[in-house]
């Protein structure tokens, strides 16, 4: 549609959209604004411009939130999970998309069912099992849990990318004497690369932000993620909201920066599969 019929409709549309944008940005703006203020100033008015810009809120938040360790843990966890999901997921997605096995229907159905499985359904035995195996506070073990949770939807998303590849390409490579593995790694993977990147981005975001598993399995001082660290630190220092908002900004910043650069891929990946033509 190229514009509305009459001016009133169009004006009204912009007013509603403007209000929606305001509601969305308002809490984020409050976070940024108050992250630069001293605690008494926040209490005087959360809306006022800072009298003196307090960058030390950030350094104190970084220290009190133990963010040097926590960011490193989050980064390792995120990278590990991305590698696990993309590695195992792309093989499965390929096999399911091309119906390479007889039971593809069963496996697809099972994976669709686990996409929506409640974490509570497997959390308790998993926790006590991990405890017995000494895997609590182990970042690598937790990345395997994330892999299990994020794989099903990643596979469904990757599958659509594999489905879009013409079958002739595969057949041609096989005739040229390539092995099945070579077809997968040398022909298919380079073509579906954008799909893998999208999945990596979404899985990375979800891992970075994840709360329930992280707070249950990674409680030790040395193994906490940035999210868990912020959660604990924000429960302790509830009088200095300036410092707290600085901590919040630090945790959010890498995610938002990445989102601004790669918004299209983010939006496509996260909304993909939900839109039915």
């Amino acid at each position: 549609m190229n514009g509305a019929d009459n001016r009133t409709t169009l004006t009204l549309t912009y007013v509603v959209l403007g209000m929606a944008a305001f509601i969305t940005l308002f809490p984020i703006a409050l976070m940024l604004l108050n992250s630069l203020k001293a605690a008494p100033e926040v209490i005087r008015s959360p809306l006022a411009v800072p009298e003196e810009i307090r960058w030390d809120n950030y350094t104190r938040a970084w220290r009190d939130g133990n963010f040097s360790t926590a960011f490193l843990n989050s980064a390792i966890l995120t990278v590990m999970t991305i590698i696990l999901v993309c590695g195992s997921g792309s093989m499965t997605a390929y096999v399911l998309a091309r119906k390479k096995i007889k039971s593809w229907r069963l496996v697809t159905g099972y994976l669709l069912a686990t996409t929506t499985a409640p974490i509570q359904l497997f959390l308790f035995p998993l926790y006590f099992g991990f405890a017995r195996l000494g895997l609590i506070d182990n970042v690598f073990a937790v990345s395997v849990i994330y892999c299990a949770i994020f794989s099903p939807f990643s596979i469904m998303l990757l599958r659509t990318y594999f489905l879009a590849v013409p079958k002739e390409l595969e057949e041609a490579a096989l005739i040229d004497g390539a092995t099945h593995w070579q077809v997968f790694t040398r022909v298919m993977l380079p073509i579906v690369w954008p799909g893998i990147l999208t999945v990596a981005l979404i899985v990375g975001l979800n891992t970075w932000n994840e709360f329930l598993i992280a707070t249950t399995f990674l409680q030790g001082q040395g193994s906490m993620t940035a999210i868990v660290s912020f959660f604990l630190f924000s429960g302790q220092y509830t009088t200095d909201w300036g410092q707290l908002m600085a901590g919040a900004t630090i945790v959010v910043l890498p995610v938002v920066a990445l989102f601004i650069f790669l918004q299209r891929r983010f939006i496509e990946g996260m909304t993909g599969g939900s839109v039915k033509g």
């Binding site: 929606a20 944008a21 809490p27 975001l205 995610v255 989102f259 983010f266």
Partner: peptide
């Protein structure tokens, strides 16, 4: 507008919760 509307979903729940608790 799409980018703006999409922002909240990419912000971690802990952060969103604390911003609303403290700032609103």
């Amino acid at each position: 507008l799409q980018v703006i509307f999409f922002l909240p979903i990419i912000i971690a729940t802990v952060i969103t919760a604390r911003v609303w608790q403290g700032m609103i």
